[in-house]
Design a binder for these strands. Structure first.
Length: 644
RNA sequence: GGCGGUGUAGCUCAGGCGGUUAGAGCAUGCGGCUCAUAUCCGCAGUGUCGGGGGUUCGAAUCCCUCCACCGCCA
C-alpha cells in the first residue's frame, strides 16, 4: 500500500444508528470532529471528515415495522433528520456514508470473502441467550430466572435461546498481536485511563466472535450463503474504509487511510479498540492512530435515555442562539474524556458570561470606539509602546499554548487559554483608557495605536476560535473589514500585524445576545407541551435493589406540621434507633390514626429538610391521584425487621 | 469478587516525580471606570487538600489503612 502522505488528516465520527432521531449526544461527537477537522484545515492539512448512518440490523427492522414502514423508508426519513441537524450546526463533513449504499454493501462482502478465504472467518454453531432488542447474546453468567428464561440486563426484556449456524471471526488469534500493538502504541486509545480497560479486557482472553445472523434479514448478506446476514458491527465498523474509497476509489483510500482519529462515545470503545483493529489486522490494513472515547452529556445528573424521556433536543437552542453558542458550550464545558452535566442554567450562564460579556462586548466596545473616534478607519498610529508590545507578546505566548492544546484534542483547554487572552485585552483597554485619550486631539496617534492593538487582537482571537465558532469568527473578521475568509490565512502566518492599517471597519451589531434564563425557560415550556407519557422505569438489578435499606418502622408519635395541610411529623422506631420523619399523608390519615402503626420505611435515604425539619427516612405509600395510601401489615411484625 | 480511577474553596475543576503565604473560572461582597450587550477592571475572602496512621527536617503531593463515589470485567 502506498505510504500515506504526512499532510493528510482523516477523522471520523461513529455512524449513527437510524432507529432513533438525533439528540445532543450525536451532536456532541460530531461537533468535536468538526472542530478538530477545521483546526487541521487551518494548519493547511488535507482533511477528510467522514460521518454517516448505520442503517442495518434488527432494531431498525423492528422500529420500521412498528411504523408500518420498510426499513429503508425509515432510514431515509431519519437520515434527513441527521443531515438537517448537521447543517444547522454548521458541520462541514466531506462525505456522509450510509451503510445501505451499494459502495458500502458490495465492499463489505468483498472484505468478508477475503477474510473467509484467508481463514479468519469460519463457519460454526453458536448457541446462547439472545436479546432481540439489544441485538446481542447475553453473557453466560446472566442468571436464569424462575421461569427458565433469561432477562437481558441491559434492556430488561426477555431473551431467547438461539442456536444457529453462523460465521465466526477468529478474534482469539489476535490477542497477542493486539497486546503487542497496545504496548507499542499507548496513545491508540484515549483518554489513557480507557487504554487500561482495553488492555485488561484483552488480557483476560479473547474468544472468537460470531459475526453473522440468520435471525435478521435487514443487512448485508454473506456472499455465496445469503441466508446469513452480516452482523451490524462487522458491517458498520468497515464504513471507515468504505467511506473513503475502499474498494471503489483506491487512490483516495490510500491517500487517507489509516485514520488519524476515530471519535466515539465511551460506550462503543470495545468495538473500536479491540474488534476493529483485529479486523484490520486480518485484512492487512494499517491501523488507525487513535480511538478517542469521549464522555456523555448527562441531563440533570442522569444519563439521557429514551426510556427516561429526558433526551435533550438541540433544536430549541439552535433556533434561539444559532449554532455557535451550543458548539462553544459543549466543547468548553468539559474535557473530551469526561462526562458533563447539561442544564439550561449552565448553558445560559456560560454563554452570557463568556460569549456575550467577555468576547461579544469586547468586539462591540472596540469597534464602537474605532467608529466614534476614527469614523471606522484607523489611518495613523504611534509606534508600539511597552504595553502594546506586552499585549502582542502575550498573544504569541498564548498562541503556542493554544496550538498545543488543539494538537492534543484538549479543546476545552484551548478555549480556556483563548479566554485568558480575551481577558488580557479587556484589561489592556481598561489600563490604557482610550476613551480618555479621545478627548485630547494631540493624543490621536496614541489612541490609534491602542485601538489598532485591540482590533488586531480581535482578529487573531476570532481566527483561533474559528474551529469552534466558525460563523461568529467570520462575522468578526467581516466587522474588522477583512475581505478574505479566515480559512485563507494559514495558522503559521497568523500575526498581529496582519491587520492592515486604514482598513474600513464596520459598525458592529451584538454578536451574542444576552438571553435571560427565565425567558428561555418560558420559551421552552410553551414550545414543548410535553405529552405526559406513562412513567416507565428502567429495570434495576437485584444488587441495585439491595442498596435500599427497607425496614419495618413503628410510628411512636405523630403530629401535624404547623401551617401545612399534608405534612405529618413522626417519631419512628426502626429497631436500632428512633428517627424523626416527615411525610405528606395528613390529608388521608390523622396523626391519631398513625400513632402505633407499623409501616415500611426506607432508612438509608438521604435525609431531606422539609419545612425546617430534618426527615431521616421515608415511609412507603401508594400514590393515588396525589394522595398517599400507606400499606400496613396484616400480621404482627417487630420494628426493625428487614423488608425485601 | 477482580482490575483501574476519583475524593482539593459554595459550585466545576487545576496542581500532585515532597520544599516559599494551596491555585483558576463561576458564584458572593466591596471599590473603580463609563468606550461597551447593566458590560469591563481592581480588591477581598473563605479551604484541618475524604478520615486515620506512617516515612521525612518538611506531605495535598510518597507508603499503609478505612470510608464514599465512579469506570471496565464479551
Amino acid at each position: 500500500m502506498a505510504k500515506k502522505s504526512k499532510n493528510t488528516f482523516y477523522i471520523t465520527t461513529p455512524i449513527y444508528y437510524v432507529n432513533d432521531v438525533p439528540h445532543i449526544g450525536h451532536a456532541y461527537t460530531t461537533i468535536i470532529a468538526d472542530a478538530i477537522s477545521r483546526y487541521k484545515k487551518l494548519l493547511g492539512k488535507d482533511v477528510f471528515f467522514l460521518t454517516g448512518t448505520d442503517e442495518h440490523g434488527q432494531k431498525v427492522e423492528k422500529a420500521a415495522q412498528e411504523k408500518g414502514l420498510k426499513p429503508i423508508e425509515l432510514a431515509d426519513q431519519v437520515v434527513v433528520r441527521f443531515q438537517e441537524l448537521w447543517k444547522a450546526l454548521n458541520i462541514d463533513y466531506d462525505f456522509f456514508i450510509r451503510t445501505t449504499q451499494p459502495i458500502h454493501e458490495e465492499n463489505i462482502q468483498k472484505i468478508f470473502k477475503k477474510l473467509k478465504d484467508k481463514g479468519d472467518i469460519y463457519k460454526g454453531i453458536y448457541e446462547g441467550w439472545y436479546c432481540d432488542s439489544t441485538e446481542h447474546f447475553l453473557d453466560e453468567d446472566v442468571p436464569l430466572e424462575e421461569g427458565g428464561f433469561k432477562i437481558c440486563p441491559e434492556c430488561g426484556t426477555k431473551a431467547f435461546i438461539v442456536s444457529e449456524e453462523c460465521y465466526f471471526f477468529k478474534l482469539s488469534a489476535y490477542q497477542k498481536p493486539l497486546l503487542d500493538f497496545y504496548a507499542q502504541k499507548p496513545t491508540f486509545v484515549r483518554p489513557r485511563s480507557r487504554m487500561n480497560e482495553v488492555v485488561s479486557f484483552v488480557k483476560q482472553g479473547l474468544k472468537d466472535i460470531s459475526i453473522t445472523r440468520t435471525t435478521v434479514e435487514w443487512g448485508v448478506p454473506v456472499p455465496d450463503d445469503p441466508k446469513h446476514t452480516i452482523y451490524v458491527w462487522f458491517d458498520a465498523l468497515h464504513n471507515y474504509v468504505t467511506g473513503i474509497g475502499y474498494d471503489w476509489d483506491r487512490p483516495h483510500f490510500e491517500k487517507f487511510w489509516p485514520a488519524d482519529v476515530h471519535l466515539i462515545g465511551k460506550d462503543i470503545l470495545r468495538f473500536h479498540a479491540i474488534f476493529w483493529p483485529a479486523f484490520l489486522m486480518a485484512s492487512g490494513f494499517p491501523l488507525p492512530q487513535t480511538v478517542f472515547g469521549h464522555g456523555w452529556w448527562l441531563k440533570d445528573e442522569a444519563k439521557m435515555s429514551k426510556s427516561k424521556g429526558n433526551v435533550l433536543d438541540p433544536h430549541l437552542i439552535l433556533e434561539t442562539f444559532g449554532p455557535d453558542p451550543l458548539r462553544y458550550f459543549l466543547l468548553r464545558e468539559i474535557p473530551i474524556g469526561l462526562d458533563g452535566n447539561f442544564s439550561h442554567e449552565g448553558f445560559i450562564h456560560r454563554v452570557n458570561s463568556d460569549l456575550a460579556n467577555d468576547l461579544g462586548n469586547l468586539v462591540q466596545r472596540t469597534l464602537t470606539m474605532v467608529h466614534s473616534y476614527f469614523g471606522g478607519k484607523i489611518e495613523e498610529m504611534d509606534k508600539e509602546e511597552k504595553a502594546d508590545k506586552a499585549l502582542r507578546e502575550e498573544f504569541e505566548n498564548s498562541k503556542e499554548k493554544i496550538i498545543r492544546f488543539y494538537e492534543d484534542y484538549a479543546l476545552n483547554r484551548a478555549l480556556e487559554e483563548i479566554w485568558f487572552f480575551i481577558s488580557t485585552v479587556n484589561k489592556y483597554l481598561a489600563d490604557n483608557e482610550p476613551w480618555k485619550l479621545a478627548r485630547d486631539e494631540s493624543q490621536k496617534k496614541r489612541l490609534g495605536r491602542i485601538l489598532y492593538q485591540a482590533a488586531a487582537a480581535l482578529r487573531v482571537i476570532s481566527y483561533l476560535l474559528f474551529p469552534v465558532i466558525p460563523v461568529s469568527s467570520e462575522k468578526i473578521w467581516d466587522f474588522l473589514g477583512e475581505e478574505k475568509s479566515i480559512e485563507d490565512e494559514s495558522l503559521s502566518e497568523l500575526k498581529f500585524k496582519n491587520l492592515k492599517l486604514g482598513q474600513a471597519m464596520k459598525e458592529p451589531k451584538p454578536l451574542f445576545p444576552r438571553v435571560a434564563l427565565k425567558d428561555f425557560l418560558k420559551e421552552e415550556e410553551t414550545r414543548q407541551a410535553p405529552p405526559k407519557k406513562e412513567e416507565k422505569m428502567d429495570m434495576i438489578t437485584f444488587d441495585e435493589f439491595k442498596r435500599m435499606d427497607l425496614r419495618v418502622g413503628e410510628i411512636l408519635t405523630a403530629e401535624k406540621v404547623e401551617g401545612t395541610d399534608k405534612l405529618v411529623k413522626m417519631e419512628v422506631d426502626i429497631g436500632t434507633e428512633k428517627r424523626a420523619m416527615v411525610a405528606g399523608v395528613a390529608d388521608v390519615y390523622s396523626p391519631e390514626e398513625l400513632a402505633g402503626k407499623k409501616v415500611i420505611v426506607i432508612v438509608n435515604l438521604k435525609p431531606a429538610v422539609i419545612r425546617g425539619i430534618e426527615s431521616r427516612g421515608m415511609l412507603l405509600a401508594a400514590e393515588i391521584e396525589g394522595k398517599a395510601i400507606i400499606p400496613f401489615f396484616d400480621k404482627d411484625v417487630p420494628a426493625g425487621a428487614k423488608v425485601r
